[in-house]
Design a binder for these strands. Structure first.
Lengths: 117, 117
DNA sequence: GATACATATGAACAATTATTCATATGTTAA
DNA sequence: TTAACATATGAATAATTGTTCATATGTATC
């Protein structure tokens, strides 16, 4: 294998290389973006977020609704919390979770559109 | 543990349950959405997509640009291809990849906004 | 045909991750 | 304080996944 396309005999290519290198985000940002999408990339977490689109809800009700164990839901809520996608408030023994911001819905809509095409 | 919040003594809750059950997408769609986000959830694939935002490009140049092996890039391009996120055309020995549609950019923008906040 | 290059792909390995189980922490009411 | 419930969490397990290595396939040129 040779791989000597870039910048060997081709000025146009050089320009593209420079432009691309400018445009690719820093390692740190790339990592954060990937992390965020990883969080979206699990159907349990997606289901949780769909539930929270409708209403804030406590852990055990989410578990009941999705037919999963309290522990599984709690673990996943932690992941969503760390990604700052959900927030929570405590009321006595119960902890209510809700969505943290509005980008979530937009991201979902675009994803759905892509899939439906 | 008891978990008998839902539908025990609470009419309001029943309504929410019904609404949520209506709104959660089918298993199949949930699965597809999760799959799509999984594809986005890797920094190598994200880098590839950022490169392709700028210009169509052949496999070995992407590899060179991102400082990775041809094999690694080729494997990842396959994943992107299966998710219908990139398309390709062959020109002699060389295969040029480019982005398949416009949702990709929107999804990225929203994700970046979320992260930057 | 044979050679060289560009790309694709199967197998193997290491790393990551979702769930379960058991149990800890936090809160309320008796 | 004790009992009961809601939630959180650590450890273990099974499954998934990104990269590497070796090699196969596809294409052009000699």
């Amino acid at each position: 294998m040779k791989n000597e396309h870039i910048c060997e005999n081709c000025e146009v290519h050089k320009e593209i290389v420079n432009r691309v290198t400018d445009v690719i985000p820093d390692e740190e940002i790339l990592y954060d973006v990937a992390e965020l999408f990883k969080v979206f990339g699990d159907s349990t977490r997606i289901r949780i977020m769909f539930v929270l689109f409708e209403s804030e809800m406590c852990v055990c009700d989410i578990a009941e609704l999705l037919n999963m164990t309290q522990s599984a839901i709690s673990h996943q809520l932690r992941v969503l919390k760390q990604a700052r996608l959900v927030k929570y408030r405590r009321d006595g023994k119960t902890v209510y979770y809700s969505l943290a911001d509005s980008h979530v819905k937009t991201i979902f809509c675009q994803a759905m559109e892509h899939i439906m095409e």
